[in-house]
Amino acid sequence: MEAFLQHLLNGLLLGGTYALLGIGLTLIFGLMNVVNFAHGEFYTLGAYLTFAAASLLRVNFVLAIAVAILGGSLLGALCERVLLRPLRGESIDTTMLVMIGLWIATQNGELLAWGGVAKSIPHPFPTAPIVIGPVSVAPLRLFVLAAVLVLIAGSHVLIHRTRLGVAMRATFQDRETAALMGIDVGGIHTLTFAFGSGLAAAAGALLGPIFLVYPSMGDLAALKAFSVVILGGLGNFAGATLGGVILGIAEELGAGYVSSGYRDAVGFVIIILVLLVRPSGLFARAGRVG
């Protein structure tokens, strides 16, 4: 029982991190229909920027995270303008492949710039765990969970309650009509990609201190992000959150009670099963097509 509660808590915390990875991608993949294999690289970038700010420039931890988010957004905007805008109207495979190119180039660029040795980001939280009855948890993890909830709620409000959000959704549902209504369609594309990239950088900034920072850290993150987005339904923040938590708990229990070697298989099997039963994700609204 003691172990089960700890597994459950672990799964919840892990799920929070997965949700964080998923919400940025659900915009880019879900709304913009870009199979963004470079998403993990914005995550890596966020982690390295936080490392540079917190460890090399010695700025405040929270400020360092803000720097990372800003840097991720700006670079996202740049990528959209330079790489995706010229290819608008080309097939989804072409843009996917450009993002694969970006993924390979940036990952090796990071290796060149930072070297292969993993970095650890200093943070102000105590390392001693908080013990509650049979379970224990690191303070940093609780902070990250709280930050994840704030980011998800904020993004949800931005997309569903603001004029900008309305313009975003309108643009990706019906481009021509949106343009006729006077929406700056090109600007919305750039902004959405920047926002999604900023969220990926935020994930890197928040998870970097928990784990380690190294050039290939984004690969696993991107894979998990895709899983979460599909489980939750494309473009759905609440779905991505729940999808992340389900994935986290399933992996944790699978590794705890079935076999740790098959840990990642649990997530894959869940995706296959969910899509067999509900072909458009667990929480998709009707009528949304990939």
Binding site: F29, L223, F226, S227, G261, Y262, F268, L276
Partner: peptide, 28 residues
């Protein structure tokens, strides 16, 4: 058979997952 039910992004993920499971079986 799956492709009959799934399109686009969903098909992508099912195929990735299938390859992932196959890979883990080969390891374990």
């Amino acid at each position: 058979r799956l492709a009959l039910r799934l399109r686009g992004a969903y098909f992508v993920l099912v195929t990735i997952s299938f390859a992932g499971v196959a890979s883990l079986v080969s390891v374990n």
